[in-house]
Amino acid sequence: MYKVTREIHFCYGHRLLNYSGKCRHLHGHNGKVEIELYSEKLNELGMVRDFEEIKQVVQVWIDDNLDHNMILCRRDPLIPALEERKERYYLIDENPTAEAISKLIYDYAVSQKLPVSEVRLWETPKSFASYRK
């Protein structure tokens, strides 16, 4: 099995609903995503996929949708205040944990026909969550 990994950096904010710790407050992260692709054989150029293709597909989507954005649960009562102030936000169905965001990115990459084996989201230099099927 061959694997390649592309690293993507982005900044985002979030908060966790119904959480008693510090993460219940709005805060931000300098996130790092690792997108790992796999293949049992290499293409005609000797690659799993071109790193530039991963950048054009996934990094462009992250830059457009998640970078410098608040990632919030659809049920977050803060949404009307953000709308009133014309602030950016991206809504997901669950709490925007590192686990949920890694799955969000995984699902997008798979929807774009990339052979993803795993997505890791580093929320801090010491902590990451990952998603794979």
Rank of each mutant, 00 (worst) to 15 (best):
N69I: 06
E99L: 06
L91T: 08
V33E: 00
A98H: 04
K3T: 13
M70V: 07
V116N: 02
V60G: 02
V48Y: 01
S102K: 06
Y12D: 01
R85K: 15
Q56I: 02
N65A: 09
G21P: 07
C73A: 14
I54K: 11
E118T: 07
E44T: 05
H25W: 05
L91Y: 02
E40N: 15
G31E: 01
L82D: 04
A100M: 07
F128A: 02
Y2T: 08
H68Y: 13
E53A: 12
N30E: 11
P125Q: 12
I105V: 14
I35D: 00
R24L: 08
G13A: 13
Q59P: 00
L78I: 15
N30M: 04
I71Q: 03
T5D: 02
R120L: 13
V58S: 02
L114Q: 03
L16N: 05
P77G: 05
K86T: 07
N43V: 01
L114K: 05
R85N: 15
I92F: 10
P125S: 09
V48S: 05
K55H: 13
K32E: 01
Y19A: 03
P115A: 03
D93Q: 14
G46H: 01
T97R: 02
M47C: 09
V48F: 01
Y108W: 12
Y108K: 08
Y2V: 11
H25N: 15
K32S: 00
K133I: 08
Y131N: 12
L17Y: 01
Y38P: 05
Y90R: 11
K41M: 06
I79W: 11
R88L: 09
K41N: 09
E118I: 05
E7M: 13
A100L: 06
Y90A: 02
I35G: 00
V4L: 02
Y19L: 03
Y108V: 00
N69D: 03
L17V: 04
I54Y: 08
E118P: 01
Y38H: 14
D50V: 08
H9F: 12
H27A: 12
S130G: 05
M1A: 07
G21V: 04
H29T: 12
M47P: 04
I62Y: 11
S39A: 15
Y90F: 14
E87R: 09
K3A: 08
C73D: 14
P77V: 06
N65H: 10
E83M: 15
L26F: 12
M70I: 11
M70T: 01
L37R: 03
R49K: 15
A81R: 12
P115N: 12
W61Q: 07
G28K: 13
L82K: 07
Q59C: 00
G21H: 10
V48D: 01
L66G: 02
K3L: 08
L26K: 05
N69Y: 06
